[in-house]
Structures are given as structure tokens and as C-alpha cells.
Design a binder for these strands. Sequence first.
DNA 1: CAGAGGTGCTTGCGATTGCAAGTACCTATG
DNA 2: CATAGGTACTTGCAATCGCAAGCACCTCTG
Lengths: 169, 169
Amino acid sequence: MDMHENSPHGDVAALFGRLVRESLPGRRGEGAWRALLQAQATLMRQLDTDLRDNTGLRLADFDVLAQLAEAGGRLRMTDLAARTLLSRSGLTRRVARLVDEGLVRRANAPGDGRGVVVALTDAGVARVTETVPVHLQGVSKLFVERLDDQELALLESALRKVIVDCTFG
Amino acid sequence: MDMHENSPHGDVAALFGRLVRESLPGRRGEGAWRALLQAQATLMRQLDTDLRDNTGLRLADFDVLAQLAEAGGRLRMTDLAARTLLSRSGLTRRVARLVDEGLVRRANAPGDGRGVVVALTDAGVARVTETVPVHLQGVSKLFVERLDDQELALLESALRKVIVDCTFG
DNA sequence: CAGAGGTGCTTGCGATTGCAAGTACCTATG
DNA sequence: CATAGGTACTTGCAATCGCAAGCACCTCTG
């Protein structure tokens, strides 16, 4: 019998479902995987637009400033790239933009003529100081508050297990 | 006392930590949040490069084909954009590329002169059919296999709670 | 059935990205 | 101390993205 679903080939959805069940027995993990994709995509998007609207800083730039602040104010380019999950070339340009805005300063690394140290300027410290609460309130409202302690603990331990050790850039 | 950490201002890291504790009491949820960011970023990156290497298809393109397959082979542009978490303009261009590759076909929507229906071609069905197992094996190896049933269930239910309802594009 | 406003999609544009190649510097070897 | 090879970072390039504006079509109202 042909099920006139889609003229030439049979029921594509059924074929697709069969393939999924072959690779993921019982479709195990499929729901969790989809939830991960959707949660991350929508959360990041919402946080980015909220942060932009409320502080004028995009999330990616804030991340650079926050990583610097957490590290005491200064980091080597390569370290900073690793922490921000950014490629090194991507970081070069991002830092250049932040330098233009006066939030960050570049200096030669002491004892290594190749290296560059990125440091927060006073303006950068001020900016990150006023931005952190806004960002974390977003994280709190959209993420932390919606989960209880047990869920947060399990989420953390489970997600840690699936972090891939891959270098970026 | 001044702690010569960073010439003009005091200890930025301590200030930063204080701000975090103020917005996230007890730093509750911080670990889970970081694990989410890192897991998603590294997983997606690894899956994309693996899929590229093994099938020549980039993950974003595969996602379009897979969504089409799951929906029975054809979808309206707007529906497809929503499912792939892509902006509508982004989808327009992505579909154009897939049309060039012969994996997908465009047609006018019946009964609505504005609408466009995207449909898998036979080549597209073949391509997605051979790619699905490769992709799902990656998902399985990097994600599903590393977690037990309980973890997967809790991950799914927890992540569903933090999905934001925001339109893309 | 005319016109206002909404919807579906595409295009102009500016911004951003990663890769690969290039430059500058460091270090180990003989 | 010369040179080969590695590391740190930057830049040329081509690709991609989202926003905002634009176009075409639909639908509701009077």
C-alpha cells in the first residue's frame, strides 16, 4: 500500500523514527537532549537581549569582563580565550573592541615578548560591577529560581559528565 | 592596607565574589549554570566537527533536514524556523543553500500565495537517512551513554522548566 | 469591494565568526 | 651561537547571522 504522504517516497516520518530507534534504543535520552538544546538556546537569547536592554552590554562582552574580574583583573589572551570558550582570533577582535570602549587595556606579558596581558581598566571594573547584579538577576529569575536544590545539584553533576575536553579556535 | 594586586584598584576578584554572593545567595545554582554553558558549548562543537568529518554535512544543515524528515518531509518556512531555533531570514538563506545542493525543494504553499513549503528531495531523504545514525551515535557516545536513566529523566524535567518562550528572528 | 493593517518571506546591511596563513618571539639542539 | 621547530597572537578571507526594511499577499472592516 502506498500512503500518498509525499508523492515519490513513502512515509518519511516513519522512516526517520525507525532510524532514531535503531541508534537510540527506546529513544533513550532523546527528550533530555532536546531539552538541553532548547533550554540553552532560549536562555542565552533571553539573557543577551535583557542584558543589552538594561546595561547596553552584550552578553559575550560581559563574559570577557566577568572572567577577567574573577581572575583578579588580568589574564593572558590564551587563558582568557579558554575561559570564554572563544577562539583565539575571535578573542583578539573582541578585546580590540573592548579596548576601543576603554573597558580593557592590553600590555606586553612580562618575561614573554610574544604574550599579551589583558587587564580591566578602572572603567571596566566599574562597568562589570554594575552589570554583574543585572546579569545574575536574569540568571536567577530564568534558571536558578525555577529549580530546587536537588535539581540544581543533579543538573550540575550530570552536565559535568558530558563536558567534552576540546580546545577552541 | 593596599594589596598591590592591580595597581589602582583593590582586589577585583574579591569584589566580584562579593557581588556574586549578593545576587545568588550562597552562590546557589552557579555551578549548575556554568556546567550548562560549558556542556552545551563543547558538545555542540564536538558534534559539529564529527558530523562534518564523517558525512560532510554541518550540524545546522543536518538539523534542517532532520526536522523536515520528522515532520513527514515538508514544512512551511515559519514552522521550520521555529523548530530549528533559527531566524526566518537565516532560514531563507540556509534553505537556499540546501536547494543549491539539491537536498531540498521549494514550492508555493497551496491556498496561500505568500507561503513557501520546503520539502525534502529524494536526495535529501537519502542524505538524512545516512546521516541520522552517524549523528545519533555521536549524541549517544557523548551524552546519553554517560548518564543513567534517572539522570536523563531529571535532566529532561529540569531543563524543560527553564526553557524560555521567546520567538526567534 | 476598497482600503488599512497583518502575515510570510526575502534582501540590504553591518557585524561577527573561525580557519588558515602570517609574523614575532622563545627554546632546545648540536 | 646558529638554526629548527614550537608557541602567542594577529590578520586576510569567506561564510554566516540577525535586524530592519521591503515586497507580496491575505483578511477584516465598513
